[in-house]
């Protein structure tokens, strides 16, 4: 039996009560692996990850983390459960300095905070160099690193990432995704939503494809990448050009 970090069963969720965007989605994220969710625009990828993070009301279905039911958990209790969520785009506090952003994320860590801060600076030297700058002054890629560093501050078991490569140059996107991949070696489970299908599939272990708020296909990322039908439907012309 495979060790499962996160399970979603028949989840129904949306922004307005009677208008579910997510109609029926089930998925699992394997411990210490990268699971990626892809699908066309409006498929409900971001909705799913927000529902897991407790930011949207779930009207049916269950979400469990390990053996804990986290379906209707308040989002501010998430980090206490060992889950960090990195939102899309606006994922750092622009008006605070980098140091203040990190201090905020380390707020509840207590005595270990100074050591953990040093650890994060060592891992992301660029943040250490600019620690007293306003976070809003960082480049797109640096912002994502700060967002990941903030997510790591509470030493989570699971990190949820909503399109970490959005708005980044291909090179910066690659760096951020590689960084996420590297975290799995330290015992972290990664669940991410991506538009950038090609790059995402190359670094992921497992993949779910959603469409119109429902599961379509799932399987190992490598198989997906090589599946001609999946390639044609979901990866589109981009992949054709690439190969």
């Amino acid at each position: 039996m495979v060790d499962i970090a996160l399970t979603a069963n028949n989840v129904v969720a949306g922004y307005v009560p009677d208008l579910p965007i997510l109609k029926d989605v089930s998925m699992q994220a394997r411990r210490e692996a990268v699971t990626v969710i892809i699908g066309p625009n409006g498929a409900g990828k971001s909705t799913l990850i927000k529902a897991i993070a407790g930011l949207l009301p779930v009207s049916a279905g269950t979400i469990t983390h390990g053996d804990r039911d986290i379906t209707h958990m308040r989002p501010d209790l998430l980090t206490g459960q060992g889950i960090s969520y990195v939102p899309q785009m606006d994922n750092i506090f622009r008006t605070l300095t980098i140091r203040q952003n990190l201090d905020l994320a380390l707020r509840k860590v207590g005595r270990d905070a100074p050591a953990r801060l040093d650890d994060l600076y060592a891992r992301f030297p660029v943040l250490a160099d600019k620690r007293n700058d306003k976070a809003g002054a960082l480049s797109g890629g640096q912002r994502q690193f700060l967002a990941v560093a903030m997510a790591l501050a509470t030493a989570p078991k699971l990190i949820l990432m909503d399109e970490p490569s959005a708005g980044l140059s291909p090179k910066a996107a690659q760096e951020v995704l590689e960084c996420a991949r590297g975290l799995t070696d330290q015992g972290v489970t990664i669940l991410l939503v991506e538009q950038n299908v090609n790059q995402a599939l190359r670094m992921a272990d497992h993949c779910y494809i959603l469409a119109e708020g429902c599961n379509q296909v799932d399987g190992s990322a490598a198989d997906m990448l090589n599946d001609p039908i999946v390639g044609e439907i979901y990866l589109g012309a981009k992949r054709m050009r690439a190969s």
Binding site: D76, L78, T79, S84, P87, D90, F93, R94, R107, T154
Partner: peptide, 16 residues
């Protein structure tokens, strides 16, 4: 300041 700037992000950072 965090809540004023971005309430959702503040929440997921553990701020009630």
């Amino acid at each position: 300041r965090a809540v004023a700037e971005n309430p959702t992000l503040a929440q997921v950072n553990g701020i009630r």
